[in-house]
Amino acid sequence: MSELPISSPYRSTPDGPVTDSEREQLSARLNTAYADGRLDADDYQARLDTLFAASRLGQLVPVVDGLPPATTYDSPAMVAPGSGTPGQLSEARDARRVSIGVIVAVVAAVVLVAILLVVLLSLA
């Protein structure tokens, strides 16, 4: 029995055609799983053979069954892996750059308000 949810396109639309894009994505997932040691050489080769022989999505169930789910989003740069371990403090921001940014924003706001006041007073 497959571990795939019924909402998976491989189970919900088993008669749908296999596109080149689908083959490329699954091939990349298989390569990653093999490189990570999740698949042995025989299983990897058998899944690749099934992938490239399939013409319908339902035939791909044995290929994707047991693979980690595909990533459907990108991690924001702020939480991207490799930026440290959980709980590790990040490098401090340069206080001068932050304070200059704040000063520039305040000055811009004051100038904008002054221009608006001059325009409004000249119209009155």
Rank of each mutant, 00 (worst) to 15 (best):
S2G: 08
L4F: 10
L4D: 02
P5K: 10
P5N: 11
P5Y: 02
I6C: 00
I6D: 04
S8Y: 08
Y10D: 02
R11D: 01
T13D: 01
T13F: 02
P17T: 11
V18Y: 00
T19W: 01
T19M: 01
D20R: 09
S21P: 01
R23M: 12
E24C: 07
E24F: 14
L26W: 11
S27N: 15
S27E: 15
L30W: 14
T32C: 02
A35T: 07
G37S: 11
L39D: 13
A41P: 01
Q45K: 14
Q45E: 12
Q45P: 03
R47D: 10
L48N: 06
L48P: 00
F52S: 03
A53W: 10
R56C: 09
L57I: 05
P62N: 10
G66L: 07
P68G: 04
P69T: 06
P69C: 05
P69D: 13
T71V: 07
P76C: 07
P81M: 11
S83M: 11
G84S: 12
T85Q: 14
P86M: 06
L89W: 04
E91C: 04
D94W: 00
D94E: 02
A95G: 02
V98R: 01
S99N: 07
S99H: 03
S99L: 05
I100H: 04
I100M: 08
G101C: 02
V104E: 03
V104S: 09
V107I: 15
A108N: 07
A108M: 11
V110R: 04
V110L: 15
L112I: 07
L112A: 13
I115H: 00
L116F: 07
L120K: 11
L121Y: 08
S122F: 00
S122L: 06
A124C: 01
